[in-house]
Simulated scan of single mutants.
Amino acid sequence: MKRAPILRRCAFALGVLGSLTFGAAQAFGSAPTPRDASRPWCDPVQCNVKCGGYGICQNNVCLCY
């Protein structure tokens, strides 16, 4: 009857492994959410172009230096 403890441990280990695998699949398998177009957003590259040199985004506003 030594098989019962081994089988119990294997079943427990498989259960834990299965739940961790499911959690990882849920965490990494979801698609990234699209950017909300209504939310203000400052693009650093476009900010530099608008400023004609060096610009920095701060609080979603382009500041030229």
Rank of each mutant, 00 (worst) to 15 (best):
M1W: 12
M1D: 15
M1Q: 11
K2I: 09
R3W: 15
R3L: 14
A4Y: 15
P5I: 09
I6S: 01
L7H: 05
R9N: 11
C10T: 15
A13M: 10
L14Y: 05
G15E: 03
G15D: 04
V16N: 11
L17H: 01
L17I: 09
L20Q: 09
L20F: 14
F22W: 11
G23Q: 13
A24M: 04
A24R: 01
A24N: 02
A25Y: 05
Q26P: 00
A27K: 06
A27V: 11
A27E: 13
F28A: 01
F28D: 01
G29N: 07
G29H: 13
G29Q: 08
S30M: 08
A31M: 04
A31Y: 08
A31T: 15
P32N: 12
T33W: 07
P34H: 07
P34D: 15
P34Q: 13
R35Y: 05
D36Y: 03
D36S: 02
P40M: 04
P40S: 07
W41P: 00
C42M: 06
D43V: 02
D43P: 01
P44I: 10
V45W: 01
Q46A: 13
V49T: 13
K50Y: 08
C51S: 12
C51R: 11
G52S: 04
G52P: 02
G53A: 07
G53P: 01
Y54V: 11
Y54S: 05
Y54D: 12
Y54E: 11
G55P: 10
G55K: 08
G55Y: 10
G55F: 10
Q58A: 01
N59A: 09
N60P: 00
N60R: 11
L63Y: 10
C64Q: 08
C64H: 04
C64K: 11
Y65G: 04
Y65C: 02
